[in-house]
Computed example of a mutant assay.
Amino acid sequence: MTTYVWDYLLEYEKERPDLLDAVDQVFRSGRLVLAESVRGFERDFAGYHALPHCVGVDNGTNAITLALQALAVGPGDEVITVSNTAAPTVVAIDAAGATPVFVDVRDDDFLMDVTQLESAITSRTRCVLPVHLYGQCVDLEPIQRLCQRHGLVLLEDCAQAHGARQDGRLAGTTGDAAAFSFYPTKVLGAYGDGGAVLTARDDVDAALRRLRYYGMDTVYYTVQTPAHNSRLDEVQAEILRRKLTRLDTYIDGRQAVARRYAEALGDTDLVLPRTVPGNEHVYYVYVVRHPRRDDIVERLKEYDIHLNISYPWPVHTMTGFAHLGYAEGSLPVTERLAGEIFSLPMYPSLPTELQDKVIGAVREVLATL
Rank of each mutant, 00 (worst) to 15 (best):
T115Q: 12
T225W: 08
Q136L: 06
M318N: 05
E280V: 12
Y183A: 13
V358K: 11
I359A: 12
F27V: 05
T99N: 03
V285P: 02
L366T: 09
L51K: 05
G151T: 05
C147W: 13
V82E: 00
M318F: 00
L19H: 09
E238Y: 15
M216E: 15
G40H: 07
R16E: 12
V282D: 09
C54N: 10
I296A: 10
Y283D: 06
T218Y: 04
T275D: 09
N59Q: 10
P142W: 13
G339T: 06
P345N: 06
W313P: 00
D109S: 05
T185K: 12
V297S: 05
G168E: 08
T89S: 11
T61R: 11
I64T: 07
Y284G: 07
V103R: 02
H228I: 07
P100L: 03
V223D: 00
T173G: 02
E11M: 04
Y250P: 01
Q116L: 15
D252Y: 01
S37N: 14
T368R: 13
T81F: 02
R149L: 11
P52I: 00
T174Q: 08
P17L: 08
D202C: 00
T268D: 05
K301L: 04
Y284S: 12
R28D: 13
H228S: 04
P17N: 00
Y221L: 00
L265G: 07
L240C: 02
I251D: 04
W313N: 12
Q69S: 14
Q136S: 06
L34Q: 15
E298Y: 04
A207K: 15
E234M: 12
A96N: 00
T222S: 06
L350N: 05
V285N: 12
Q160A: 15
A63Y: 04
V204D: 04
A171T: 06
A190R: 03
P277R: 11
H290Y: 13
Y311H: 10
L111M: 14
S29K: 15
V57R: 07
T222D: 01
E156T: 06
V23N: 09
R149D: 13
T275Q: 13
G60L: 12
F182I: 04
V257L: 10
D203V: 04
D233Q: 11
L19A: 05
D233Y: 10
V287F: 00
P291E: 03
E335F: 06
V362C: 06
S83I: 00
V73Q: 11
G189C: 10
L19W: 08
D24R: 13
E42N: 11
R39L: 14
P351G: 07
G60C: 13
V365R: 10
Y213T: 13
T3Y: 03
D157W: 05
